[in-house]
Design a protein around this nucleic acid. Structure first.
Lengths: 109, 109
DNA sequence: TTCAATTTCTTCTACAATGTATATTCGACA
DNA sequence: TGTCGAATATACATTGTAGAAGAAATTGAA
């Protein structure tokens, strides 16, 4: 089964991780996702997606140092694996293939 | 009812319907979807999606005349409703927002 | 100095919505 | 009637989404 197809949120999260570069950890990902998406996302939703993508080895993570800010717990940073990057590229290509020739919404939100 | 968010397949099917214009009925949609997507999709998967989008009033359908070909049963044609078009545009815009600034896969598959 | 409150993060759990496949039904011919 | 194009029904897997609970670090009062 497990056709290696990515869901909407999965793709979105992966893109946000790329956009954040280093510094892509749970809360930051959630915030940037909400910003780009113009709607709120809960942390639970984000972490679940992060875990699933990690399980599929499309993401890898490593723990950072705790920051000296109040409550600053060690953050878990995420980045795409080679396989993840490939899967995302594939999804993007498929998307282009689908949009080809269509008169869709312009770039202006 | 749930969130007004479209899944990957839902968006794909809607785009294919736009691409087909008139002539967007089950089998044709399945074929064009498989072509653009470069992978096989079953009719069941397509019809289920079509039904769900119709239930959400993002699509509307009407029956055509049966063709004089052997087994040619009356086809059910689909088209986007205004609301459907809006939902798709919104999804496309969100997508652009997410892709913004990223160095993603080029057009070359 | 100790430790409970507070803050920031992460993990767990549960359920709704989508994705996907197979089987069944329907209606038109030959 | 049997077969073919097309649609419907049904079932289960994967994703999407929320809310609550658990952890680690800091602050500050006793």
């Amino acid at each position: 089964m497990g056709r290696n197809t990515l869901g909407t949120l999965e793709q979105a999260v992966m893109m946000v991780i790329l956009a954040l570069g280093d510094g892509a950890y749970g809360v930051a990902i959630r915030d940037e996702l909400s910003r780009r998406t113009r709607r709120e996302h809960t942390l639970g939703a984000v972490y679940t997606t992060l875990d699933r993508l990690s399980a599929k080895e499309l993401l890898e993570s490593y723990l950072g140092e705790p920051t000296p800010t109040r409550g600053g717990r060690a953050k878990r940073y995420f980045k795409l694996t080679g396989e993840g990057r490939q899967a995302l590229d594939h999804a993007v290509n498929t998307r282009h293939e689908l949009e080809f020739g269509l008169d869709l919404a312009g770039k202006g939100v």
